[in-house]
């Protein structure tokens, strides 16, 4: 079973700081979603509200159709792994696994033990004695083995080295295809997780900048290169995210999905059209320009 998510006009304030302001989004059940955005864009806050760690200041949040706050069923089916996870740090990791086996309805101990091996974690050791990367790996183990209907990973790979991260992606996909559930990955490492995602949400300054299928987003954006006047004529009327000039040559990054006709037009004008990867697209979209 998987939990879907519906968020309407969600506002979260910490004292005078507004972390989220009237954010609205929908996460389809059973899909892997990417939650992208810069530091302070509200990713952690959004996930904290979904996991009932925090209460919204205003707005409505529904997880599997119900308000998650103090909802035993929804909370039991939601697992938020914040960085290294909310686990006991001063006792052996085995104790934490024992605890979760009792606390979590679908916890898979065999999977947890296998993943402990994969990440070379000694269950007798305490998280405080581990490196940042190893603690993050333990968070990943907890998040995967909990097998929650809504699993939220908040920057879980911080400090993990590349082989561990790839081991995590492999383990995630492997377990996901066997036990489909709703998964949200928040990350800066967009390039690495891009192909894992079915749907992408980009937050910017406490609001939802865009929410789209990864496929659609992958085709979005184009880098047009050629003689200055020709480029400028072509991009006129399109949203230019960035313009760079090198002598007579101009490269413009536009936020547009170019169809075949547009591409043919560009080609005819002697322009080269290149792709914009998701990482650059996010960087450009969330750059200094005012979001509101």
């Amino acid at each position: 079973m998987s939990f879907g998510v519906e968020v309407q006009d969600l506002t979260v304030e910490y004292g005078r700081t507004v972390a989220l302001e009237r954010a609205s989004l929908t996460l389809a059940p059973g899909a892997i979603h990417g939650l992208l955005g810069r530091n302070g864009s509200g990713k952690t806050t959004l996930l904290s509200v979904l996991a009932a760690f925090r209460r919204p200041s205003a707005g409505r949040v529904l997880v599997d159709g119900e308000d998650p706050w103090e909802n035993p069923r929804v909370m039991a089916g939601t697992c938020l792994v914040r960085e290294s996870g909310d686990v006991e740090v001063d006792t052996g990791m085995k104790d934490t696994l024992d605890y979760l086996e009792r606390a979590r309805p679908h916890f898979d101990r065999d999977l947890a033990d296998r993943l402990m091996d994969t990440f070379e974690l000694d269950p007798r050791r305490k998280p405080t004695k581990l490196s940042r990367g190893k603690r993050s790996a333990f968070g990943a183990v907890v998040g995967l083995a909990t097998r929650a209907e809504l699993t939220l990973f908040d920057e879980v790979y911080l400090g993990m080295d590349a082989p561990s991260r790839h081991a995590f992606y492999d383990a995630l996909l492997e377990d996901y295809v066997e036990h489909p559930r709703t998964i949200v990955l928040s990350s800066h490492l967009i390039e690495e997780i891009e192909r894992l995602l079915e749907h992408v949400v980009i937050l910017d300054r406490g609001g939802v900048l865009l929410a789209e299928d990864a496929d659609v987003l992958g085709a979005r954006g184009a880098r047009v290169t050629g003689p200055g006047p020709a480029v400028d004529a072509f991009v006129a009327g399109r949203r230019v995210l960035r313009r760079e000039q090198l002598g007579p040559t101009v490269q413009a990054t536009v936020d547009a999905t170019l169809d075949d006709a547009a591409r043919a037009e560009a080609h005819a004008a002697g322009l080269e059209v290149g792709p914009v990867d998701l990482q650059s697209l996010v960087v450009h979209l969330t750059a200094k320009e005012p979001a509101r």
């Binding site: 996991a51 760690f53 103090e70 035993p72 909370m75 039991a76 909310d86 605890y99 979760l100």
Partner: peptide, 16 residues
């Protein structure tokens, strides 16, 4: 102070 994070982090309610 130690257990609050662990309890809620494990998907258990404040009431409990």
């Amino acid at each position: 102070t130690t257990y609050t994070n662990i309890h809620i982090g494990a998907g258990l309610t404040r009431r409990s």
